[in-house]
Structures are given as C-alpha cells and as structure tokens.
Amino acid sequence: MSGKLMAAVSAAVLLWAVPALADGELHIYNWGDYTNPKLIEKFEKQYNVKVTLDDYDSNETMLSKVRAGNSGYDIVVPSDYTVKIMLEEGLLEKTEPNAMPNGKNIDPRFVDIYWDKGRHYTAPWQFGTTTFSVNTDKFKGDIDTLAILFDPPNELKGQINVLDDVNTVMHAAERYAGVPRCGADKASLKKVNDTLMAAKPSWKTFSYDTITKITSGDVIVTEQWNGAAYRSRQKIPAIKYAYPKEGIEGWMDNVAVLKGAKNLENAKLFQDFVMAPENAALISEFAGYDNGIAGSHKFLPPEFANSPEINPPAGAPAAEFVPPCPPEVVEIYNKIWTNLRK
C-alpha cells in the first residue's frame, strides 16, 4: 500500500517536476572563449531554458567570486586542482554525475581522478597538456626535451615565451631538475631555483598570448597548451608541439554545480547534457581540446581528432595531473617567482 502510494506520489512529483525542471534559467560561469555558442543554443532548445554565459580569466578569479558568496551562478568550470580546493571548502553540490544517464560515457581514465574520486561532483569538460611548441622552420634540433626551455641552444636564447603562470613554470622546472612536484625539501627547491635563474636570461616574455607570440615571429619557442598549439599549426604548419621526455603537465577542466545554486535541476541537466558524446564533440570542436567523453571522436573533424596535439606519440610520458601544492610550498613558489621577475 505505502509502496503504491509512494509510487503515485513520485509519479505526480515527476509529472509536475519535469516541465518545471525544463523551464527557467541557467547561469554559467566559464573560462573566456571556451563555450561553443552552438552547445548553449542546443541546450536552450532541448530543455527550454534561458542560459546566461559569463567568462573568467583564471581559476582564482572564479574562486574569489564564488567564495565571497551570492555570486548568482549555477555552473562553474574549475580546473582539476581548483575542484579539489572547492570540494575541501564545501563550495560544490554533490550531483552524482557518474550516476546520470550519460555518466556511462565518461572515459574510464577520468572517473577515479584525484580531484573528484568516482565523479560524485563534476562532469568532464575538456582536458589537455601543457608543454611547449617550436617553430621548426627556425630550429631543426631535437625538441622533445625540457632543455629547450631551461638550457636552450644558442639560437633559441632570447626567443622563448613562457606562460605567465607560476604553477606551470615551476612544475616544468621541477621536472627538468628531476625533483618531485610540490616538494618542500630545501635542497630540491634550491635546484629548481637555480634552474629558473639560469634559464631566465634566455626568456623573452612571460605571456598567455601564446598563439600570437609564436605566429607573429616574436619568439621561436613558446610554452603552450596543446589546443593552442593545434591552432598555431593551422597558421604556420612548421609549428610543432613537443612531448618532452622529462614529463608532461596535464590538466582537466570540469563542469561543477555550485552549492546553493538557484537553478539546481537545470544545472544537473547541463552536467548530463555535456557528457553526451555529440555534445562533448561540440565543446572540443570549438575550443580545440579533447574532452574525456568516450565516443566523442567520431563526431569530430578527422584532421582534428587525429592531430598530433591531442594524440601523444607512442613512448611519450603520460600526462601528470598535479594536485594543489601545500601552503608552505605555495609560499616558497611565490618567493621564487617574485625573485625571478623582480
């Protein structure tokens, strides 16, 4: 009896809820120029939801706003280490994307990740690697080594751009110096510091604007994300993305729902929506990175799906996803970084 009642009630709730769910608004806060307008349009049509999209330029900006409270956003797209921080601070809603209808599409490599073990909070958005690209018209040597950045041959000295990003640069230096990531050990940090100080005179600029830097001829080498490298190669075919033997930085951005989101149900619908292979392909097609959803490649243009930028060669080291460093290490990173650029 009570079972039947429950069923009836839940059926009624569902009947009421479904149209109500599919109506209304959704406020998304994502990295700049990262969201395919077609994806948003499709979602709006499919669920009759009005979406607003705003952009941020760094995890830290997003985090500051979310942490202050009352940001008004439902969905944010934090990178791996930021998901970890947001979870520790209790900023995200437990939405169980893994149990959603499209949850089965998540590439098994990206289910038990350090930032959200078992995918209870976040859905994959895009992932990629960060190494560097070289214009091989201007440099013919072996590029698959971090020595290109940290101990460059003479013809590359003063022709290098690195990302204006403390973590990426520090981690790369740690790999080159052969010490662990985020290590607090003084001797290792000294090595890292020496590596950076020795490399600095060879660096021309610190900038995120990597595609313009390398395609305009300002530099020959630039630290870069793989998707940006793909785009650079579309402009100058000789630009080659390196897979340094010392190790490769990996990252993943994830769709998360904020705790207290006003449009919680729509936000869940959106998480499920982006895990459908054809939708994940829309994301990748626009922004140029792989997405962590199995079966999405067949919806992608083959020259992109088969490009060397998203398919590492056999023998390349596996991408390493680095958790947030402990505060005492961040403090030292900060000092080294300031000293490097004073």
């Binding site: 806060y29 990295w31 700049g32 120029d33 607003t52 705003d54 940001s71 940006a228």
Partner: peptide, 15 residues
C-alpha cells in the same frame, strides 16, 4: 550573471 561588459568580453578572449 549576465553583466559581462565589453572589456570583460574582449580580455577573456586572450587565450
């Protein structure tokens, strides 16, 4: 939400 201005729109394309 929905209050993006031109400088925000333009700056966030720098990637």
């Amino acid at each position: 939400p929905g209050q993006t201005t031109l400088p925000l729109y333009i700056w966030n394309q720098i990637r």
